[in-house]
């Protein structure tokens, strides 16, 4: 059976996923080697069981990110913190100097016309956590891939190593933030 790979998008800009797609023609090679079981670019809605590798982009920013992070940990053998937002909080955590109320007030009251309304139907939409957190503050992770976003070569290297059953040890050139 081919290794079961998932990619997940939490509180990030999707740039890490775009860098994944920037592997270009190598994606066709990858399609032969893996089964993509869950991803924003695929239609399975429920994070599945028995995932071999999960690449997780973005910081943990709201209650739904947090619940999903725990589910990923339960169902995936190897969880990779994918990019700087997952690794450090990065841009998503720039909001941490303010309270959620302050940032919400700016966007939905000060910058709205006529009868401003605060998004509050939390049965439907997610609720911001007081702070956006890096993934490893919420669940234990098995590896970090730096970069905002990580480069396609870096991703290719990490995924290839994982598929070969090895824990990737990144060469120095890949150890950079930003």
């Amino acid at each position: 059976m081919k290794p079961r790979v998932a990619t997940v998008w939490l509180g990030g800009c999707s740039g890490c996923h775009m860098s994944f797609l920037d592997m270009d023609e190598r994606l066709i090679e990858l399609a032969d080697k893996i089964e993509l079981v869950y991803s924003p670019i695929a239609d399975v809605k429920q994070f599945p069981m028995n995932v071999d590798v999960a690449l997780v982009e973005g910081a943990v920013s709201n209650n739904e990110n947090e619940e999903l992070a725990h589910l990923i940990r339960r169902n995936a053998k190897f969880v990779l913190s994918f990019g700087d937002c997952a690794t450090t909080g990065n841009v998503t955590a720039m909001r941490n100097q303010f309270s959620p109320d302050e940032i919400i007030h700016r966007a939905y009251v000060e910058l709205a016309e006529a009868d401003p309304t605060i998004p509050s139907e939390f049965m439907t939409i997610a609720k911001l956590l007081p702070q956006a957190k890096p993934l490893h503050e919420v669940i234990p992770v098995d590896g970090f891939l730096h970069g905002c976003p990580p480069t396609p070569d870096q991703i290719w290297f990490a995924v290839s190593e994982l598929l070969a059953g090895r824990t990737p040890v990144l060469p120095n050139a890949y150890l950079r933030y930003g």
Binding site: G11, C13, G15, S61, N62, E64, N65, N90, V91, T92, M94, R95, Q97, F98, E102, I103, I104, R106, A107, L111, P119, I125, A126, L128, C148
Partner: peptide, 25 residues
Amino acid sequence: VNEFRGFEKFCEGRLMWEMPGITSR
């Protein structure tokens, strides 16, 4: 639409010169 990241607020206090780098994120 389910999430909010708050750029309109947290860019306050940054230099105008940094904005292309921040907002591209």
